[in-house]
């Protein structure tokens, strides 16, 4: 027990950290594409759903877990690249509103394809469910998935940070996110930078799919949809146009979700969504440019 008067125990804390980590990965995945395309990809959750179905089929076909996971990565990456080629690239020069609506369309399209193909009950991806079992860490029982999710998220974020700060393509991506026009004049290839961002975003979606299916073994066409909406709220709360604040926002909202879900009695935690989104509205009223961005950021109102 950390705080005796609430039900806050180490396992609950670890689960909350893990959820925060997964949401942070999703936030980065959404943020990377937003950085170079100024596009909020509402179809991000459907990428994760596709990955989860790949895992479910892998389990059904009796594939070894590592092959299933590779299959999941392949499906999500292929779908990401297709999305870029068929939707983002042709619409890139259009207004952000057009692109936004286009991603809504893609999201509903993929959802309905999943509904038609896999039915409303979906499939079971139970192969990794044994990771819900706890590890005994000095007398405290922490679920394996919590430890794995926390270390995976931290590892992915650290690798991404290295890529962005230590490699030429990382430098090009950061520059493109700040001023794409000037970056291109300097020789930064637009298609390459966007392609890399889409690929990285897809990788993170695949990782999220693997981590999420451990908990939610029943994969349906709405898989990852509620999570995506919450993460988008977190990203907006953190500050959409800055990568670190967006990640922090995603982490914070996931952590809060996990923590409140763990310590509140069930009859209260069913209102959790309402609480979280009320908090989002308050934050946006007080700090429109995001919770973690420097104050005084100019937001123009009409």
């Amino acid at each position: 027990m950390i705080l005796g008067f609430l039900n806050l125990t180490w396992p609950v804390f670890a689960d909350a950290l893990a959820l925060g980590g997964i949401y942070a990965l999703m936030a980065v995945g959404i943020g990377l594409v937003f950085g170079v395309l100024r596009l909020v990809n509402f179809a991000y959750g459907q990428l994760i759903m596709a990955g989860a179905f790949a895992l479910a089929y892998g389990a059904q076909w009796g594939l070894p877990n590592w092959v299933s996971i590779l299959f999941c990565f392949g499906v999500v990456l292929a779908l990401s690249v297709l999305m870029d080629r068929l939707v983002f690239r042709p619409l890139r020069t259009h207004s952000p509103a057009v692109m936004l609506v286009a991603t809504f369309a893609v999201a509903f399209l993929l959802q309905n394809i999943a509904l038609l193909a896999f039915g409303s009950l979906g499939k079971t991806a139970g192969a990794l469910a044994q990771l819900q079992a706890p590890w005994d860490i000095g007398g405290v029982f922490i679920r394996k998935i919590a430890i794995i999710a926390i270390t995976t998220a931290a590892g992915c974020l650290a690798l991404l940070q290295l890529l962005l700060t230590r490699t030429p393509v990382g430098l090009h991506m950061r520059a493109a996110a700040m001023d794409f026009r000037t970056a291109r004049i300097l020789g930064v290839r637009a298609n390459r930078v966007i392609g890399v961002a889409v690929l990285l975003s897809g990788l993170l979606a695949a990782v999220s799919a693997v981590l999420l299916t451990v908990e939610q073994t029943q994969v349906t066409y709405t898989f990852a949809l509620p999570e995506t909406i919450v993460v988008l709220a977190g990203v907006v709360v953190g500050g959409l146009n800055r990568p670190v604040p967006a990640t922090l926002g995603g982490f914070a909202i996931g952590f809060a979700y996990g923590l409140l879900g763990g310590i509140l009695p069930t009859n209260q935690s069913q209102y959790l969504n309402s609480f979280i989104f009320a908090a989002v509205i308050v934050v946006l009223l007080v700090r429109p440019s995001g919770l973690f961005t420097r104050a005084g950021g100019s937001v123009e109102r009409v």
Binding site: A175, M178, T182, I185, G187, V188
Partner: peptide, 30 residues
């Protein structure tokens, strides 16, 4: 740019949040 034409744009357009060296390394893109 990759064919050997470099532009110093109006208003300089340097990347204020990157270091001086990172700005120069960005120039290597072409």
């Amino acid at each position: 740019a990759r064919r050997g034409v470099a532009l110093v744009p109006e208003g300089r357009r340097i990347f204020g949040e990157l270091t001086v060296e990172e700005n120069l390394r960005l120039g290597l893109a072409a």
